[in-house]
């Protein structure tokens, strides 16, 4: 199974303050452990929301809103994509991360896999999904 491990924004990350060298080193070591265990698939850190935009839709129109966005706790500052065997394994890994000594909250979410849909994904639905994906790939 795959999980996305989501790191929330903090006032520091939103202010564009870069992590300390010490934290970077520790994070580097932790990532290395994940690689060695064959767990880490991808990892990215995001720049502050001041350097991003939101696109809002409504009434057939779209509006582009410039950052920064205020609700810091709702913002994402980075993520990992891990391959683990259970959610508990992901929890055990994050306990070993440098975040263990912080006051931050890390969110772990399961990524949908085809088999998660089980019987709910009838052959008809599957076909629909397939043809939709085909249309997207043609466009």
């Amino acid at each position: 199974m795959r999980v996305m491990v989501i790191v929330k924004a903090t006032p520091d990350s939103e202010a564009g303050v870069l992590p300390s060298e010490e934290l970077l080193t520790e994070m580097g070591k932790f990532n290395e452990q994940l690689v060695k265990a064959g767990v880490l698939l991808a990892a990215e850190g995001l720049q502050s929301s001041a350097r991003g935009v939101r696109v809002r839709f409504g009434g057939g129109k779209s509006t582009v809103i410039d950052g920064p966005f205020t609700e810091t706790k709702e913002l994402i500052a980075g993520f990992w994509l891990w391959q683990v065997r259970s959610l508990e394994e992901a929890v055990e890994w994050i306990r070993r991360s440098p975040f263990a000594r912080s006051n931050e909250e890390i969110e772990i979410r399961r990524v949908f896999e085809a088999e998660d849909f089980g019987d709910a994904l009838t052959p008809e639905l599957r076909a629909q999904q397939q043809s939709r994906a085909e249309r997207i790939s043609r466009n």
């Binding site: 265990a37 065997r85 259970s86 508990e88 394994e89 929890v91 055990e92 890994w93």
Partner: peptide, 10 residues
């Protein structure tokens, strides 16, 4: 038990 399972796995 589930945590032990995860630790074992790692």
């Amino acid at each position: 038990a589930r945590t032990i399972d995860a630790v074992w796995r790692i």
